[in-house]
Design a protein around this nucleic acid. Structure first.
Lengths: 195, 195
DNA sequence: GATTGATTTGAACGCATGTTCAGATAAAGC
DNA sequence: GCTTTATCTGAACATGCGTTCAAATCAATC
């Protein structure tokens, strides 16, 4: 039953998640210790266990929150329209949403193998759900003759890989603006699915 | 000065690299111990240090060998031709070469952050060298009017990300053959760079 | 068959790991 | 101002880490 100056549950909790996200992204889940995270938060390691049952849950919660928020943001952002319009919306949303949170995206892609079986299955289902949204757009475009795509599943995987790749090189303040990047990628995506 | 049954330097050395490659790919560099690798090789941990100065070198050597072999194989495989022909060769080579060695590819992409600064710089230079080969093809295509690509650097990054993504989902014996995959990706790549 | 030299063992080093928990401390409620 | 309760400390636990090295063992050479 102890406590130090100005520390509260509603402060330490988010701080813990922020520190874990930042450190996991930079050094990797396995290479980061609970003591490092605690030092970043400004508490001793034992205090973290008031906010997470264990290290594994910390990783899972970060990834789960990221995927949940991704799906909610996507469904919120999308407006109805022709498949080509929807595809353009997807490209814009995906690039911008992912570029805005590189740490969470990096973790979601790199730390899958550090999830236990149960947690992995849950995250993987969310990822497939997101991929399915793109594939549905492609299917609609094929159905109404707007797209020339012979395998919508492969095309969806290819496009998502291409778009997510932006995060590996794009840096704010570099040669290209976010608008430039979006335009360049949309140009390639558009042409790749048209006849 | 000890030795056990049927163990030789020219057997244990490659075995060490194979075990490290397999374990690093499956669990990650930081999560794999020298004792785990040794158990996989069939020796005690101490014996590994006859073949590598330390764990870091083990990782670096794997990545360096992978990148060196990639560049040699690429330069060996490529034949002269028009930019569109060269691009097709690149797509075919990249997909097949990477699909054939998923472990080394996985490590080369996932474990960059576990290299020390010096080693990282060396691997990164090799990677940029490979990316430059694709960009050179795109530049040539733009120069002779065959391609409609407004930013060859971005296009190269986008295409490589797309092609490397094959490894995240392709499995031998699945719905699609390697020939199918190559045809599907080439179709998308070709269209994305043409007018 | 003895000698040599390469290879491996097995124990040890100091240090770090995730997690637990009794005790200390400070804010909140009365 | 006293009590309650949430929060944090600090030490401890068993275990594992990368690495080193003297001693042991085996294969090859003479």
């Amino acid at each position: 039953m102890a406590r130090t100056q100005g520390s509260h549950s509603d402060i330490t909790g988010p701080r813990l998640r922020d520190a874990a996200r930042s450190l996991f992204a930079r050094f990797g889940y396995a290479a980061v210790s609970m003591r490092q995270i605690a030092a970043d938060v400004g508490v001793q390691a034992g205090a973290l266990y008031n906010y997470t049952p264990d290290k594994q849950s910390l990783l899972f919660d970060l990834m789960k929150a990221h995927m949940d928020e991704l799906l909610i943001a996507y469904d919120d952002a999308m407006q109805s329209g022709a498949p080509l319009d929807q595809l353009e919306q997807f490209v814009s949303f995906h690039i911008r949403y992912h570029a805005a949170r590189p740490e969470a995206v990096f973790i979601a892609y790199m730390e899958l193998r550090n999830l236990n079986d149960e947690n992995f299955a849950e995250i993987e289902a969310l990822r497939r759900s997101y991929e399915a949204r793109l594939e549905d757009i492609l299917k609609a475009g094929v159905a109404d003759g707007a797209f020339d795509v012979s395998d919508t599943r492969v095309a969806a995987m290819a496009l998502i890989a291409m778009l997510t790749g932006v995060n590996t090189w794009f840096r704010e303040g570099g040669r290209l603006s976010m608008d430039d990047v979006e335009a360049l990628y949309w140009d390639m995506v558009r042409k790749s699915v048209l006849c």
